[in-house]
Design a protein around this nucleic acid. Structure first.
Length: 499
RNA sequence: GCCCCCAUCGUCUAGGGGACCAGGACGUAGCCCUUUCAAGGCUAAGACCGGGGUUCGAAUCCCCGUGGGGGCACCA
């Protein structure tokens, strides 16, 4: 069924001015999914025409984030392609040519108004409660006059000559046709006085030249959508399929998720950036699954998706036009699901950096034995460190009161620990069942519940009230260390009771 | 202020005139399982923004409100 769709050329065109956040990630993911699904190309283009805001580190972060998420591009600034260059700052001549073509066709004009005059016009309009727009002073300048002023060295920009009459219909596959009065559309600047094109020109030209078939972009472009359609029409180009993605909202649903929130100091604020999510122990598989569902759905009962599932199932039609608030608890849920979905050896590999980060010397061979015990207990990779550090530490330090069994006195607890120690000293740890039965019998003998006895041993051996399964853990730690830790616990309990 | 978009449980959503006293997921609560914690299983509470139409019949179509969001730069 999906076989008959024609190969799409889809582009992700970020502006390297900041960090790569989950909104960018979602757009890139949809781009990627659609391109791969249709057997087309996923193109990466850098929109770096604003030299003021350009940030070289940002470019690197985009590459790394995309790679981390597994969204490999087919054409891009770093790898080239049939429509290179893919960095807008290297395509200035192309934009200049098209701007001139628009002027020749009577769809654009030179404007010599100073920023100061523009500001004044705007202010007056606002006082009159009118929408702030260019008043058209230079719109009717003759070609020769404009040329003369330019030759005299006067600074100018190029503006689009928006039709004063009629209307423009904009088609977005997720919405009804949007019809706007041309009279309400401003004469936007296309080329700045420094010769740099603005998004409106550069993106349209590149999308056309790069043969982009589907434009997926944020709905913040909806207000200037008519302009973009007019540019295509003025150049007599066929339009791509337009898809305006819904905005991502803060977890509260109040306001859009923005880079600004990352600095506000809220607990989950910094988690809006992909690479921060990686630091926090989230899997790219889970992040992909999570963001895929913000504004897209498949059916009634499927939410767990691996990348290939997404490629198979993704359709533009199921995208939703309404804004979506991000839900971090759902990310935790997906992360747990994907951790459990992963091969144990793979999980072990991914866990290593987190132990290293906390300076826990995790021997890979030992860690491989531990992974199965924690795989279904962790939701983020970094939780593994707290949960399993006791396996690696030479000494654990349990508080005496923690060692006391439920509803028991320190003395009774010490006695239970002592008896367990002596019993365990005679057993072969590798026979889990034998050990368990022996311990249960001991509990009976001491008139304790299994829970009471295991509780004491758990704290004595792991230093934690909550731990991976006790018997398996003991097995990994080894008899010698287990007995040693029990001796320490007994000593502590004895001392605890003494006063 | 002006323009545009959107509107189902707290959140993400299914739904595209009768199949809906509205289904799923996360979260929450309870139960089962159980050596702790998880995982897993089961159950519960929880929504069609309001008002008008259209229609035999509306969550679904239309209009008006309201609410939310976005935009109004020589940024993207």
């Amino acid at each position: 069924m999906g076989l008959k769709s024609t190969p799409a050329r889809v582009r992700f065109a970020p502006s390297p001015t900041g960090r790569f956040h989950i909104g960018s990630a979602r757009t890139a993911l949809y781009d990627y999914l659609y391109a791969i699904k249709t057997g087309g190309q996923f193109i990466l283009r850098l929109e770096d025409t604003d030299q003021q805001r350009f940030d070289p580190e940002s470019e690197e972060e985009y590459y790394e984030s995309l790679r981390w998420l597994g969204l490999q591009w087919d054409e891009g600034p770093d790898i080239g392609g049939p429509h290179a260059p893919y960095r807008q700052s290297e395509r200035m001549q192309i934009y200049q040519n098209h701007a001139e073509e628009l002027i020749e066709r009577g769809h654009a004009y030179y404007c010599f108004c100073s920023p100061a005059r523009l500001a004044q016009v705007r202010q007056e309009q606002q006082q009159r409660k009118q929408p702030p727009r260019y008043d058209g002073l230079c719109r009717s300048l003759s070609m020769s006059e404009a040329q003369a002023r330019r030759n005299s060295g006067e600074s100018s920009v190029i503006r689009f000559k928006t039709p004063r009459e009629g209307s423009t219909t904009c088609l977005d596959i997720l919405r009804d046709p949007i019809v706007v009065d041309n009279a309400t559309v401003d004469d936007y600047i296309l080329v700045k006085s420094n010769g740099m094109p603005v998004y409106h020109l550069a993106a349209m030209v590149d999308d056309h030249l790069m043969e982009i078939t589907h434009v997926l972009r944020g709905s913040e472009w909806l207000p200037t959508f008519p302009l973009h359609v007019m540019i295509y029409q003025a150049l007599e180009w066929d339009q791509p399929i337009w898809v305006h993605l819904s905005v991502l909202l803060n977890p509260s649903g109040k306001g859009k998720l923005s880079k600004r929130d990352s600095a506000s100091g809220k607990s989950d604020a910094k988690a809006i950036f992909a690479l921060d999510l990686r630091e926090l122990g989230y899997l790219p598989e889970a992040v992909v699954n999570w963001i895929s569902l913000m504004g897209w759905s498949f059916d009634d009962h499927t939410e767990f998706f691996r990348m290939q599932d997404l490629i198979d199932k993704f359709t533009l039609e199921k995208l939703s036009p309404s804004p979506a608030a991000v839900n971090y608890s759902k990310l935790d849920h997906f992360n747990g699901l994907h951790i459990r979905d992963m091969a144990t050896e793979e999980l072990t590999k991914r866990l290593i950096p987190f132990f290293e980060k906390e300076n826990v010397e995790s021997e890979p061979k030992l860690l491989a034995e531990i992974t199965p015990l924690i795989q279904e207990r962790i939701r983020t990779l970094d939780e593994a460190v707290n949960m399993a550090a006791f396996f690696f530490k030479p000494e654990i330090d349990a508080a005496p009161q923690e060692l006391v069994g439920k509803n028991l006195t320190p003395g009774e607890s010490a006695q239970a620990a002592r008896r367990s120690h002596d019993l365990l000293a005679t057993l072969d740890f590798f026979e889990l069942e034998t050990v368990e039965n022996a311990l249960r019998n001991l509990a009976d003998e001491l008139a304790l519940s299994a829970g009471q006895l295991f509780g004491i041993l758990r704290v004595a051996i792991t230093g934690q009230r909550i731990s991976p399964p006790l018997l398996e853990s003991m097995n990994i730690i080894g008899k010698e260390v287990v007995l040693h830790r029990l001796e320490l616990a007994i000593a502590k309990l004895d001392a605890f009771e003494a006063p």
